[in-house]
Design a protein around this nucleic acid. Structure first.
Lengths: 116, 116
DNA sequence: ATCGTATATCGCCGATTTACGATGAAAGAT
DNA sequence: ATCTTTCATCGTAAATCGGCGATATACGAT
């Protein structure tokens, strides 16, 4: 547990996790990508074409969105002979959940006046 | 609980929550705004100047970032005589946490092969 | 060898974001 | 009345995003 109340604690110190978290939040910040991600969650290891068929976007656009998700680490990519396979990276999803929980918990701690 | 396994469930149906969630994720998708938000969490009801002093950015830039957070609903804004007051909207923070939990839980349910 | 399919990438564009300095408004201080 | 402080907004420039069609690659099928 972070010691947020020690005298030299600086909540604004360069936070390496924030940089990574910001990239993941950015990947989540588009309705189409949320749809794609949810599809991948419920139907693992999809190919690009299948996703195109469920989203009203051009194939090239979907490919771009998938690339964003992959670069953020939220989705794993396995190029296959005929059709590539995309699947959710549950670790990354858990990581961003943890990051967000950290914010919310800080708030909860503050509201309850809790000290270490 | 959403019935994700009913025959006519469509995970890709237009999801009104996704639009709002995407806006909030976008607000979180910047390191400076994460810093600002964390500062507001640990030190409620800050004025703009105080935040400027903790982030290496121009006052106008900070003001813009605050505007993004306010428009996303993550931060409340109360213009004051001398110095405006910004404070975290815990409801919005909880809402986005719930949205993210929804994704993660869907994944967990899928992995465990759980059915209703 | 040619065709069809699936996919990634390129080039282009309009829109949006991010940053800054400058300016103006509101209010307290002198 | 005149400064000073605080803050939002405007204008601007650079960068990035989001979308599309076109194209290139890879491979199975004919």
């Amino acid at each position: 547990m972070k010691d947020c109340f020690s005298p030299d604690f600086d909540p604004l110190a360069a936070n390496a996790e924030d940089a990574r978290a910001a990239r993941i939040y950015a990947a989540l910040a588009h309705e189409a990508r949320l749809r794609i991600l949810r599809h991948l969650i419920l139907q693992d290891a999809c190919c690009c074409k299948e996703i195109v068929s469920t989203v009203d976007l051009a194939q090239s656009t979907v490919s771009q969105h998938l690339k964003v998700l992959v670069q953020a680490g939220l989705v794993d990519y396995r190029p296959e002979r005929q059709s590539s396979r995309y699947s959710v990276n549950s670790q990354a999803l858990n990581a961003i959940q943890t990051h967000l929980n950290g914010l919310v918990n800080d708030l909860a701690d503050f509201c309850s006046g809790q000290r270490k």
